[in-house]
Design a binder for these strands. Structure first.
Lengths: 344, 344
DNA sequence: GAGCGGACTTGAAATGTTTCAATGGGCGTG
DNA sequence: CACGCCCATTGAAACATTTCAAGTCCGCTC
């Protein structure tokens, strides 16, 4: 490799070094089959010697198309989103695209900023788990004609693709499992209810509760400010503070982070899990199975969620006959020790 | 906003709509102060009407400089790296740069592919926690003149900046803490030893063990294949399989994921933690504190690691007098319940 | 030996910005 | 009224690539 002289070598430099024209170098790069073996080799040697690397900006500017997809995730601290991102990356890799992963950290302004940049980059498509699925800046993406898929959220309008799990059903199977195990007083831990997921999981829980003829007041909603471990702990405190006649024997948490926090508080407070308090989480992140008392959880097919979302966005990007699709997955209960015993 | 007609509007379209020249539109974008209030307003209105978004490729091509930094992380499944990424993002945001986060997942080929793409994108700088700090493709980045910082690894050669924690010291304080708590037989859980971190933490552990005059064979190395929860569990099995005279009363794990796996196995096997087995982890990820038995861990200043790395890479990118720097942070023990009691 | 066809290669245009020297217009000053 | 100055705007060049119509060369056939 030649010593750096400040400027990165361009196709022009390569062409000069190899004694061919610009067009030929470009052909070596993009249609190697049309150039003869001997020139190709000469050009490739020149590239190696100069340390040539194609300038993607210029390529993109001329070709008009970028080689990247983007995923804007809601909470980088929640492993669930990582697993989704892995699924997307798998699909992107297969399509020979880069994936830019951004993290909005549940902040709408950060989300908007990321989107802005991605649109400026002219990414081929945007996958997003939004802070608010009805936000104006989302509609703008679609209007702009950028392929775009909601991940882990439903599209109310049908104006774009979405990929999600049936959360109402998820709530149902979680609570049905608890009823099955003999619990007659159950807490639902989760909030804020501005999050659609939370509302729907609670709705499913209430529906099945009623169907089993249980009194409404025995399904207690413990609201939280966010879906984090910390909030789970604090919910634990509130739960412990309830008068014992009203205290639930089981809790269904809106996600695994809450459940882990609640579990920790319970253990610290000397409660046995599941003896004194059974716990069900949601998402089935790896840490759920790895908790000191392995956590029963409602599994979402995380990787597949990501792969499907990527498939949809690519279809929208390349297929002129694309029709928007709302992919729905069915959640499944994974029973573990945290709900292990049947109450007498 | 006008209806889409296929092509995204360019500065040329905006100029035409506003009745000004190209240059003026560009000035509105880049040096708003030099253009008069009335024209600026007219141009801005035209932009809004047309839904104009600057084409970043073209900007970058002409300006010669990108507006992005990249972090290639080693293991997206480990929250530690997330926290580092958050630190980097904070700094990037302050400098008004985008951050591309890539995940090599400990695979050298994926790492190389990511780097390749980043170089093609002409990112301003690359931060990386590499699979192998001596890999050839790392040296190439530097040769190419791209600012570049090793994160959570030491630069042996000094040919670039690095940001890391003193792992030998980390190993020392972990084991000293255990000795302090009265443990006389301790396991070191971690591997593969191709990872520098693992070697150094073990080295620190051995050093302090010897200094306290403990017999070498009572510090038992339980090697693992990776630093994951699963490997922690399997180490737990091997540990339980040891004859009781040789079985350690405490384990120091090379990271928190291992420690969480080990903790889980111990609890499942009916061991009390810390009564029967004390556990110390490393990194102090949030899940460590959130474990059912809160985990004692050696804390690394994760966010600060990231912020410092970003600072260094930006300095290298902008300051002609930049000198490479090896930033070293001091780890600190965070004692929690998993090592709670003093053995008589 | 003229003509033809195929295999490679060339050269120029085009992509959407930024930059910067040059231009124009208005206004105050002498 | 001429001059000079300043402010705002303009127009063209430059960035590194891709694309594609046109060109060159070569060997083969009749």
């Amino acid at each position: 490799m030649k010593p750096r002289n400040g400027r990165a070598p361009s196709v022009k430099d390569v062409a000069a070094a190899a004694g061919v024209s610009l067009g030929t170098v470009s052909n070596v790069l993009n249609r190697p089959s049309v150039v003869s073996a001997t020139t190709r080799e000469r050009v490739e040697r020149a590239m190696a010697e100069l340390g040539f690397v194609r300038n993607e900006s210029a390529r993109q500017l001329r070709a008009g198309t970028s080689r990247a997809l983007a995923y804007v995730m809601l909470d980088g601290g929640n492993p669930f989103f990582h697993d989704v991102a892995e699924g997307i990356e798998t699909a992107a890799e297969a399509a020979d695209l880069s994936l830019f992963v951004c993290n909005s950290n549940s902040r709408s302004d950060r989300e908007a900023k990321h989107i802005d940049r991605l649109v400026q980059q002219r990414v081929q498509g945007i996958l997003i788990t939004p802070v608010d699925p009805d936000a104006a800046h989302l509609a703008e993406i679609a209007q702009r004609g950028i392929p775009f898929v909601l991940v882990d959220r439903f599209s109310r309008s049908g104006g774009h693709c979405s990929v999600a799990v049936d959360d109402v059903l998820g709530g149902r199977i979680a609570v049905e499992h608890l009823i099955d195990r003999g619990h007659r007083r159950v807490a639902f831990v989760g909030g804020p209810s501005s999050i659609g997921q939370v509302r729907e999981r609670l709705q499913g829980a209430r529906a099945v509760w009623a169907e089993f003829g249980m009194p409404e007041e025995d399904l207690i909603h413990l609201p939280t400010e966010a879906l984090t471990v910390n909030e789970g702990r604090s919910a634990g405190e509130r739960l412990a503070g309830l008068p014992s006649r009203r205290r639930p024997t089981a809790a269904f948490c809106a996600n695994d982070l809450l459940a882990l926090g609640l579990l920790q508080h319970a253990v610290t407070a000397g409660l046995r899990v599941p003896g004194d308090l059974a716990i069900v989480g949601f998402d089935d992140i790896d840490f759920a199975a790895a908790a000191a008392v392995p956590l029963t959880s409602v599994r979402q097919p995380r990787q597949e969620l990501g792969r499907t979302a990527a498939r949809l966005v690519l279809d929208e990007a390349t297929n002129p006959d694309h029709v928007h699709e709302q992919a729905t997955f069915v959640p499944a209960l994974v029973a573990r020790a945290s709900t292990g015993t049947v109450r007498r």
